[in-house]
Each structure stands twice: as structure tokens, then as C-alpha cells.
Simulated scan of single mutants.
Amino acid sequence: MLEFLRYDGRKRIRGSLYVSIGLALLAAVVIWVFPSFQESFEGDELLEAYPEGVLQLFDIQTMASLEGFLAFELYVFGWTILFGLYVAYSAAEVIAADVDRGRMDTLLAMPISRARLLAERFGALSVPILTINVLVPPVVLVGAWLIDERIAVVDVIAVHALSIPYLFACGAIGIVCSVAFDRAGIAQRAALGVTFGLFLLESLLQETDYEAVGAIAPMRYFDPNEILLEGTYDLAGAAVLIAMTVVLVGVAQLWFTRKDI
């Protein structure tokens, strides 16, 4: 049972460690440079020089505290954008790569349904998602301690825990693209475009007459600022992301089951 999940999961371990190291280094650098910028951002006076569009796009609320600095530099940029794009990109090759390379017929000759094959290979995305969210928080907490800054341990754990449903939702976007396109490169570019496009949609439509359209974007339901600055956790938003993932994976399974290879 779960042979494909285990096989794909093992293949993703090395890449997960590399990405973990990259994001851990990003976290360390962000924390290391914060004391140098802290006085410049005192009272958020420097933020007044930023264009309004940039503040809205990246949801920058404050950079005068370590929590605000991390929310923007690490969690909005590093997690919501970079890590979200990475997961969507990785998911986009799950089906399309084997179709593109002519290996899918061999896989489908095995006694396994298409729906199960897709579900198990999608489930292997849990390896990078969970690995990175386990390895990076200690770097954040130790880094904050080293520069003598207080940061709530529970909030750091919460921001990583609540990012997990968000990242699976990004992966679900990628898996739909993987079924939609038979060329892996096209599927991956489509996943990147759709995911980043949804980020722009949600960011730029805030406080406009079309704000409701942004409800289709996973980014609406994961807000690092809310967690780190206010200490509030949007559990309803996490439930929406889980539902969004289930629906998108279900659509991908149905599409894949009916698709000619």
C-alpha cells in the first residue's frame, strides 16, 4: 500500500533538505540584519517613502519590530511567494512529467487506479512541506534569541503550522495544471503563472469594489502579519484552504480518470 507515495516521498527528501537550508539561511540573514535596520524603521517613518502599491502588494504593516520584519521579509516573501511557487511548480510535474516522457502507459499498466496514483503522488508533497516547516522554526527562534529579541514561540509555531494548508492548496493548483497539460515544462510554467497571478489578484484587489474576487486565491486565507503581529489564528481560513485542496485534487482526479493518455 502507498507504494507511489513512499517512492516519490523518498525522491523528494534531498530537494527538501536543500530548500530547507535555503530558507533557513534566508531566515538567519533576515534576523541578522534586523538590528541594523531597526532604528531606520523606528516609528515606521521609512515606510512612508515606499510606494503605496508596494505596501499593499506585500501587505507590509510594520517593520519596526522583529515580528513585522519577519512577516514581510521571510513569511510573505519567503513562504507565501517563493515556497508557494516552489510547491506549485513541484506538483505540476507529478503527472505531466511521466506523460511527457512516455512512462505513464507503463504506470497505468499496473493494478492501480488513476485516482489513487494521482492522490499518492500528490501526497508525497508532504515531504518538502513538512520537512521545511519543521527545520526552519528553530532557526527563527534561536536567531531571535541571539540578537536578544523576544518573539512568541507559539506564534512562530502557529505561522508554520497554518502555512501547511496554504502550501497544499498551492500544490493542488499545480496538480490540476499537471493533468491539464501533457508537457511538463508547460504545466510548470502554468502553475507558476496561476499561483503568482492569484497572489497579485488578492493583493491588488484589496479594499476595492472587486475585493470579493480575491476569495478564490489561497493567499487570502494565510496572513503571517495577523499571526505574528496580532497573535490571532484564522482556523476558519485553514479550513477553507483544506476544502480548496480537496476540491482541486478531486477535480484533477476526475479529469485524469477521463483523460486519454
Score class of each variant (00 low, 15 high):
Gln38His: 07
Met1Arg: 13
Ile21Tyr: 08
Thr62Val: 05
Glu45Val: 14
Arg150His: 13
Leu162Ala: 12
Glu93Asp: 14
Val176Gly: 06
Ile132Tyr: 01
Arg10Asp: 05
Gly214Met: 01
Tyr89Glu: 10
Ala97Cys: 01
Pro224His: 09
Cys170Glu: 06
Gln206Glu: 15
Ile173Glu: 12
Ile95Glu: 02
Ala184Ser: 15
Phe83Met: 07
Glu73Ala: 14
Met110Asn: 08
Glu73Val: 10
Val176Ala: 01
Glu45Thr: 14
Arg116Pro: 05
Trp255Lys: 10
Gly53Asp: 02
Gly237Tyr: 02
Met244Ile: 03
Gly68Ser: 08
Val179His: 14
Ile95Trp: 01
Arg101Pro: 02
Asp260Ala: 11
Ala91Arg: 04
Gln56Tyr: 10
Tyr166Lys: 10
Val240Tyr: 07
Val251Met: 15
Val213Cys: 10
Leu85Val: 04
Ser126Lys: 02
Ile164Phe: 08
Val94Gly: 00
Tyr89His: 09
Phe199Leu: 14
Tyr210Pro: 09
Phe72Arg: 11
Ile132Gln: 00
Gly22Ala: 03
Ile186Met: 07
Phe4Trp: 04
Val159Cys: 01
Leu117Ala: 08
Leu5His: 00
Arg121Thr: 03
Val33Met: 02
Leu205Gly: 09
Ala115Met: 08
Phe58Gly: 08
Asp105Met: 08
Ala180His: 03
Leu130Pro: 12
Ala115Lys: 15
Gln253Gly: 09
Met63Gln: 15
Asp223Thr: 06
Tyr233Leu: 10
Val153Thr: 14
Phe181Asn: 00
Arg220Cys: 03
Asp105Lys: 13
Phe4Thr: 05
Ala243Glu: 00
Pro111Tyr: 04
Ala215Arg: 14
Gly214Thr: 15
Thr80Cys: 13
Asp234Arg: 06
